[in-house]
Design a protein around this nucleic acid. Structure first.
Lengths: 232, 232
DNA sequence: GCCGCGGATTGAACGTGTTCAAAAAGTGCT
DNA sequence: AGCACTTTTTGAACACGTTCAATCCGCGGC
């Protein structure tokens, strides 16, 4: 029998402590090298020798070089869970709560912009096993979406009933768009992403307030109808 | 002195007719193989032998395997220009004119979905020399945007003045989003993309009509302010 | 202490995209 | 035709991601 991790190579049921330690050494070596010299510039031979294993050593634990990047993604997801549950509650304003969720992701990613370029190249294709849109990463994705659900949960902004169910997913997609923009934003200190975030978040909160107006009803329903039509 | 093509390898000023013919043979071989068996599944050695040149032969004309894909992109862009100018004028309704522009692109791409996956992987990174968002492809991009400009030009739908300048670019970005969705749409006959196109185009035309209402003024201006802030 | 078993590790080898020095083919001049 | 020059073509070689048969290691049973 074989167990499959949320993100990770196919692993046998039993693993020794030493093996687990080797695995960690490989991830550490890889992420450090990726961060310091970039994904493309880092050789699997580099990773292996930094981790103190043979040339093909990493392939016992990871199916590919790309999968090593996903180990980073998995690490930050775990970290985010604990950090967020505390932080969200601290503000009651919807705008601020959404900011908290988004800012945390950016803080986590700040050191690893170059690494994320690789993630995007991989992840843009939903049929790739490691895509953030694919089946294999569903658990992680749902957790990220849940962050937005709890950010929406608290405050008094009235949200139309028909929007309730889909809004967290929509906001998650919005966040993915922001991250994409940020990765490729070459303005100083990613100034432009900040402008985009400030502007669009404002706009979103405002639109949510307007969304209850009768005039917006048809448009809102249309939008939701489209959204549902294109889901499988 | 060296001239640089819109999309293509660095070329010397003088080229013989025979060289031009070799170049064409390589492009033909590559695009055929890419279409029939996919980008990743096609070897540069395959391309070379199908084109009747030596292993590294293609690298005299193209900087990389990826650049061969862009040759396809360039071909369709040239083709689109002649097809569109005739087609757009035939209908006066804004919605139909936009449909014409978008449908043509999809018709051109229909046979080459697998090939476009490679384009997306490359093009998603604007710092890559061959990205459709990058500097090297600017001429092609502007031409595509122009198609939307002329689609907007004719009919009587009133468009707020401040939107006029940016709307073609916005619509082009919308089209890029659609294409991205289409590429990865695995529903039968890309049914879902069709639904998305029908739905969103409706929505866009309706929003454009609403955009002149006084209530929408602040939101419209906000949106435009964001758009301008994030451009370089 | 030794055996046998299965998880863990090795490193040579494969196929790939790409490079490059050398050879060939072409061009213009005398 | 012969020569100098440039453009084009060649194919061996390189570096990389990846595979896999062979080997090593640790542990339970005798």
């Amino acid at each position: 029998m074989v167990t499959r991790m949320a993100v990770g190579a196919v692993r046998r049921e039993t693993t020794t402590a030493k093996a687990e330690e080797t695995r960690e050494r490989i991830v550490d070596a890889a992420l450090t090298l990726f961060r310091d010299q970039g994904f493309d510039e880092t050789t699997m031979r580099d990773v292996a020798s930094a981790a103190g294993v043979a040339t093909g050593g990493a392939y016992y634990y990871f199916r590919s070089k790309e999968e090593l990047v996903m180990a980073f993604y998995a690490r930050t997801a775990v970290e985010a869970r604990t950090l967020l549950s505390a932080a969200i509650e601290r503000s009651s304003d919807l705008r601020k709560r959404l900011r908290t969720v988004i800012d945390l992701k950016f803080e986590q990613f700040a050191e690893h912009r170059r690494l994320l370029i690789a993630i995007v190249r991989i992840g843009i294709d939903p049929s790739h096993p490691l895509s953030p849109f694919g089946a294999e990463t569903k658990a992680m994705r749902e957790e990220s979406i849940d962050a937005f659900r709890s950010a929406l949960g608290g405050p008094a902004t009235k949200i139309p009933n028909d929007l309730q169910a889909d809004l967290p997913r929509l906001l998650w997609m919005y966040q993915m768009g922001l991250i994409l923009f940020w990765i490729f934003d070459r303005s100083h200190g990613q100034r432009r992403t900040k402008l985009l975030l400030d502007g669009t978040l404002d706009l979103i909160v405002r639109l949510l307030q307007l969304a209850s107006l009768p005039l917006m009803g048809p448009i809102r329903r249309k939008l939701l109808a489209i959204l549902r039509a294109i889901e499988e």
